[in-house]
């Protein structure tokens, strides 16, 4: 007889008649959001690191003109190197903050989520609530990061909106990567290393100031390529490259799908079928 012959009920179903006092989706969404918001280190990084990082990168880059060919359009743009670096720095800080916050929150609650599923929480509900919470956190952090950028550079409203959109997609991508790593890697250190080094390499290589070969085709395969192209194209070239923004979203969707599939596998019980007891 194999282990798949195991027959057991889940911890549910309802213990008593009557409507449930707490609906599963809003409860899970609210607590997932609360758990994300209570990451003090991520909050500190957000408040202190973002402006300091902008300032530092701006001082290093200076305000000299920089000419480069935007890969997506083929046009040569001459821009303020400091402004371009601000976009790159914003994207970079998002990779670290959002990636770290989501990774830490997912990792810490994985066993608890497994217990919730065992107790009768619907997988799809828990997954949807966590996904929505991650998306909201990513959007708020992106908005904050784009707002702080205004202290160093005042682009026009349309140009700023392009930067915000690029930031939002970048935050979603690394939030999804944090989710994937949170359910995949065994230790905290591996996860933090992968997020920090991955984010640094990804965003640094997209900046023509730091990497003179920033228009090489291979860079199109990096997660920050789409958001960077969209933000730079929109803020400097008046070109709104929606396809590139969608490419960034595709990365986010791929990371999220991978993470959620593994989350489902790792939190599932061994429930096969119920044997309700006569009561």
């Amino acid at each position: 007889m194999s282990a798949t012959d195991l027959a057991r009920p889940a911890a549910g179903p309802p213990a008593a008649a009557g409507p449930a006092a707490y609906r599963q989706f809003p409860t899970a969404w609210r607590f997932a959001l609360r758990n994300q918001a209570r990451n003090r280190l991520a909050g500190l990084l957000l408040v202190a690191f973002v402006p300091v990082w902008y300032l530092l990168m701006l001082v290093i880059a200076g305000h000299r003109p920089l000419s480069f060919r935007l890969y997506a359009t083929g046009r040569v743009l001459t821009v303020d190197a400091g402004h371009l670096t601000l976009i790159s720095a914003g994207l970079n800080s998002l990779t670290i903050i959002v990636g770290f916050a989501v990774f830490a929150a997912i990792r810490k609650t994985l066993a608890f989520d497994q217990r919730l599923v065992f107790a009768g929480y619907r997988h799809a509900t828990l997954i949807a609530a966590k996904t929505l919470a991650i998306a909201m956190v990513a959007a708020v952090v992106a908005l904050y990061t784009a707002a702080v950028l205004l202290a160093f550079w005042r682009p026009g409203p349309a140009e700023w909106a392009a930067i915000l959109a690029g930031f939002a997609v970048m935050a979603l991508t690394y939030g999804a990567l944090g989710l994937l790593l949170g359910v995949l890697v065994r230790g905290d250190l591996e996860g933090f290393f992968l997020i920090i080094m991955g984010g640094l390499m990804d965003t640094f290589l997209q900046n023509p100031l730091g990497n003179p070969l920033a228009n090489k085709p291979v860079l199109a395969w990096f997660p920050s390529f789409g958001p960077m192209q969209f933000a730079v194209g929109g803020s400097f070239g008046h070109a709104y490259l929606w396809g590139h923004l969608a490419l960034g979203l595709a990365w986010a969707a791929a990371f999220a799908a991978g993470g959620l599939v593994i989350f489902r596998i790792r939190t599932r019980g061994l429930t096969r079928r119920r044997e309700p007891r006569d009561r």
């Binding site: 007889m1 194999s2 282990a3 012959d5 195991l6 027959a7 057991r8 009920p9 889940a10 911890a11 549910g12 179903p13 213990a15 497994q114 065992f118 019980g269 061994l270 429930t271 044997e275 309700p276 007891r277 009561r279």
Partner: peptide, 17 residues
Amino acid sequence: AGTLAADRGEVRVSGRL
């Protein structure tokens, strides 16, 4: 409890767990 898979055998539980 069903949180770990057995290699072989049978477990039957009735009612809520």
